[in-house]
Simulated assay, not measured.
Amino acid sequence: MSTTADHHEKSLELMSVETRLVRTPISVPVRTSFGIMHDRPTLLVRVTDSSGTQGYGEIWCNFPVCGAEHRALLVDTEIATRLVGRQFSSPQDCYETMNSLLRILRLQTGETGPIAQAIAGVDIAVWDMIARRNNVPLHALLGSTRHRIPAYASGINPVGVLETVERARANGHRHFKVKVGFGEETDRSNVHGVADNLGEAETFMLDANQAWSPSEAIQAMYWIEACNPRWIEEPMPVDTTRAAWRTLKNATNIPIAGGENFLTRGEYDEVARGNWMDIVQPDIAKWGGFSECLPVATDVVANGLTYCPHSLGGGVALAASAHLLAAAGGPGLLECDANENTFRDEVFPLPLSKGWVTLTDEPGLGVNIAALEREFER
């Protein structure tokens, strides 16, 4: 990873790695084609180095319901015990060490996803700590030349779609992503409803959350194309053959998006150089952290594709995604969950106006430290 800020001191010695799980009540469940969230879990990570500087990360933990507690224990029992007291030349060195030390555990347990998510959350915290110690915004430490990025409202449930879009519009959004995969009748009603109610310069996207088989996806494209969405996300399961992905891409003019559920760098490298996806969406809290997601994102942009960070979690993950997008460049948009989550909004009050997010000059991620520390002090 190359940056324009290599003069900053990036070595570290970790003195503690801690987790806290926050479950935020919600009034309306969040629905996808494969599951429902009845609360909003946020799994926080706090790291402290030998200078006393702290940094904050977040681990993706939406599903299954019991997964948040499990991932917290992975950090507490398997990662923290291996990192505390060790010295690292850089955050990347720390990230690579975590992957190396946990390689056999991944093979033995088959828990590639949860372990990758735990590592990603620690990596985010380490990078935040380094930026805070150097008293610079994280996007600047990563070499960003911009602090203003476009955004869109995401996670729009299949019930009350137009009401949710209107609330998001009132909050400053101009682009909206609607969930599909709930049956053709429901999907048609929602997609046509949103498409027919867009204002000037507004666009919409669709997310199927892997709901359709290859034949079902092609069939859906026939009627969706007339509505002109900006993209269709995860129209098929992530393990669908590359041949089927290429067949789908050749069968539609709608740009294809995905990548939030890739598990290896090789998959991202393949899609960046392939011809079967247009928008690539790694989730920084689910895989790779900054240490691997930034090289992936810049590679995607360099190969003429669009990098859009996936994010549907808490405020730390959202802030990290914003800093990563600012550093990566390209025309991608920041995913902003439109669903209720008071803790997320407290940690990272979204600086949104007319569809654009403007990052501050605060050190690190620029999140509400007091709100995070309140949880760690409990």
Rank of each mutant, 00 (worst) to 15 (best):
M236L: 04
E185S: 15
G266R: 10
E234P: 02
V280A: 04
E362N: 13
L12H: 09
I232N: 10
E166H: 09
P235F: 09
L43H: 00
V191S: 03
H175Q: 12
G366L: 11
D39K: 02
E346A: 14
M37H: 00
V122I: 06
A338Q: 05
S51D: 15
H310M: 00
I149A: 02
H139Q: 06
L162C: 08
V84L: 10
S291R: 04
E200M: 14
G289Y: 00
D93T: 07
V301C: 04
E9A: 15
A201P: 07
V45H: 09
N341S: 11
F88P: 02
G52S: 05
R148Y: 10
D345E: 13
R169I: 00
A80L: 05
A208M: 08
E166I: 04
A125D: 04
E362T: 11
G121Q: 03
R174N: 13
T164M: 11
V84Y: 06
A80Y: 00
A195W: 08
D269H: 14
H192N: 12
N190C: 02
V194H: 07
V161W: 03
T298W: 01
Q117W: 00
V28R: 12
R230M: 12
E202W: 10
E267A: 13
V136D: 06
I59N: 02
C61T: 08
V165Y: 01
V45G: 03
M1R: 13
F176V: 01
A80I: 02
Q117C: 12
E346R: 10
S100I: 12
F376S: 07
D196L: 14
R86G: 02
G274C: 08
S144F: 00
Q87I: 05
D361K: 11
V300C: 00
I124R: 01
P29T: 09
R132Y: 09
L142C: 03
G52L: 06
Q92A: 15
G330I: 06
G193N: 05
I284K: 02
I232E: 12
S16I: 06
G183E: 12
C66S: 15
W60I: 06
M236G: 05
P29W: 01
T247D: 15
E225F: 03
K179I: 04
G274Y: 00
M129N: 04
R273T: 13
G143A: 11
K354L: 11
L312I: 11
G57Y: 00
D361P: 08
G288Q: 05
L162H: 11
G330Q: 06
V271M: 05
